[in-house]
């Protein structure tokens, strides 16, 4: 089973939930611990809490065009098909802009002189390995100055696939655009972490729309809960969104997280709560009409 943890708004506690859930499941089924994939390649943090041994490494590269000047006749066919203006013909020169290239290969296919071949352009790195707690861990790290997170996420998800029967958890980036969609695609369930504020609710609505677009069932965990925020409660009821857990607002939790501790280390009681959330989701997925 694949569960994505997302939120819309940043800083709501996605990584806290993802690491908490991963540790709880690892303790529950030590013979088959879960896989945790940190898809927030712009700001990856989960490793700071789980301290995995990142034993394997792989570069992420995009295949970008390289023009053989000797064969190029400056016919401009490549520039005509490129939707991103990553290859342009200026007089007798054909120039490639690697930062603009999406690596689609279209220019290589249309070149009548076969003057274009493809070369890898590094944009990030993937790392994976076990943590002492048993959780299998993987993440991607986007290189500084590289704009495009999506190919790193795409390759990360291809590189680490759960073994049969293994639970895979995907800790997603904030937002609701393409990096989130790439992270969430293919999941069986989307767990949305929100907070009881107008911002939390505004961004939760957007995240729920992403889930609807992708056809993935979703539910909610409310973090920093102190008292019910009626508009959030009403929205969840109206959309039939199960609220699996409310994590109270507690300065002690905030202080411990700041030190790099997980929620389970702050309060071991949460291990049981997370397992209940997981079992609830499993039951819900096997019989969704019950809710």
């Amino acid at each position: 089973m694949k569960i994505s943890i997302a939120s819309g708004k940043g800083g709501t506690g996605k990584t806290m939930v993802a690491t908490g859930l991963a540790l709880s499941l690892a303790a529950r089924t030590p013979e088959q611990p879960p896989l945790l994939v940190d898809c927030d390649v712009e700001a990856p943090n989960a490793h700071l809490f789980l301290h995995p041994k990142l034993t394997e490494k792989q570069d992420v590269a995009l295949l970008i065009p390289a023009v053989d000047d000797a064969k190029c006749t400056s016919c401009g066919e490549c520039a005509k098909v490129c939707q991103f203006h990553a290859i342009v013909v200026l007089g007798k020169k054909t120039l490639v802009f690697p930062q603009l290239c999406h690596g689609c290969g279209s220019c290589t296919l249309v070149c009548p002189e076969a003057a274009i071949h493809e070369i890898p352009d590094k944009m990030g790195v993937l790392e994976r390995g076990p943590s002492e707690t048993g959780v299998w861990f993987a993440h991607g790290v986007l290189d500084i100055g590289e704009p495009m997170a999506v190919p790193v996420i795409r390759q990360l998800k291809k590189w680490v696939q759960p073994s049969p029967g293994q639970v895979a958890l995907y800790d997603c980036p904030p937002g609701t655009s393409c990096p989130v969609v790439e992270s969430v695609r293919g999941s069986d369930y989307l767990l949305l972490v929100t907070e009881p504020t107008p911002f939390g609710l505004h961004d939760l609505r957007l995240a729920v729309q992403v889930a609807i677009e992708l056809g993935i069932p979703c539910g909610v965990i409310v973090n920093r809960f102190h008292s019910p925020y009626p508009p959030l409660e009403e929205y969840c009821a109206e959309k039939n969104l199960p609220v699996w857990l409310r994590i109270p607002f507690d300065r002690a939790i905030a202080e411990s997280l700041a030190q790099g501790k997980t929620l389970i280390e702050v309060d071991p009681h949460y291990s049981e709560l997370f397992c209940q959330v997981f079992e609830g989701i499993t039951a819900y997925l096997s019989n969704p009409t019950k809710e």
Binding site: A79, Q83, F84, H85, A86, V88, V89, L90, G91, L95, F97, Q99, L100
Partner: peptide, 28 residues
Amino acid sequence: SGGAGAQAAQFVAAQQAQAVISGDFGPN
């Protein structure tokens, strides 16, 4: 959608201009 600077530059070059004036020029 992206690469506006590269596209505009290609157009300017096709007009065979010798000079171009604007407010800023990005790397592309």
